[in-house]
């Protein structure tokens, strides 16, 4: 596929299902990360698969591959795009216990789910419980724990979505803390499609069509 001579390390690892993962991406606990295919992960993007439901110490034993789903920390759908320096971090349901005197018996990380066509902007931090399909998360956005983002949502740059917030479909949110600032227009649905963007990155990038 690559035009580069054999032996030269390519910038991206391209998997059978069409994922393009930059070699400089920082994936921790890959056995707990599920990619739906055709997803792009750029350099310095971080996915904390190690924050799986069980205690992180036991996750190093690689027996978890037999039952995917039960122990998966991060689910990513098709045609997602994780920009440079973003971080996907499953939320830790035991954070509220941090101040407690008794240490929690087990880590209770809940899986983080991304739908299809989810764009995560540069340096964004995602700790949401779930992000739907056709969602655009801008640059430097912080999505707090337990937050739920439904389908067709545009999160503008530098937004901070507080923990527990629910963002309904077809809304545009911005601000610190986030508030709904607009509606996605009827003609704006196609802009969430990431097939085109997927083609323009990788070891053999195609020029953007008109």
């Amino acid at each position: 596929m690559s035009r580069k001579p054999a032996g030269v390390r390519t910038e991206y690892i391209e998997t059978e299902t069409g994922n393009k993962v930059a070699r400089k991406a920082n994936l921790v606990g890959t056995q707990h990360i599920m990619l739906g295919g055709k997803t792009v992960i750029m350099a310095d993007a971080m996915i904390r698969g190690d924050l799986a439901r069980t205690a992180p110490t036991s996750s190093s034993s690689s027996s978890s591959g037999t039952a995917p789903g039960s122990n998966t920390a991060v689910f990513i759908g098709r045609y997602c795009f994780l920009s440079k320096g973003c971080c996907l971090r499953p939320r830790d349901a035991s954070t509220r216990a941090r101040h407690a005197d008794d240490t929690p018996s087990a880590f209770t990380y809940m899986p983080l789910r991304l739908g299809d066509h989810v764009f995560v902007g540069e340096s964004a931090i995602v700790q949401a419980a779930a992000i739907g399909s056709h969602v655009h998360v801008g640059k430097n956005v912080v999505i707090g724990e337990f937050a739920i983002i439904k389908d067709f949502v545009r999160v503008l740059d530098d937004t901070v979505i507080p923990a527990n917030m629910v963002i309904p479909s077809f809304t545009v949110v911005a601000g610190q803390p986030a508030r709904i600032v607009g509606e996605v227009p009827e003609g704006g649905h196609e802009a969430f499609e990431l097939r085109e963007l997927y083609r323009t990155v990788g070891n053999n990038p195609q020029p953007a069509s008109v």
Binding site: A93, S94, R96, A97, H99, A100, D101, D102, P104, T108, P162, N164, M165, V166, P177, R179
Partner: peptide
């Protein structure tokens, strides 16, 4: 104050309880 979402929590357990009503 900030228009962020409010959630219901127990006054007693805010700092100490391990799992408020979620599991």
């Amino acid at each position: 104050i900030c228009i962020g979402p409010l959630s219901v929590q127990s006054l007693e357990s805010t700092p100490a309880a391990p799992e408020p009503s979620l599991l």
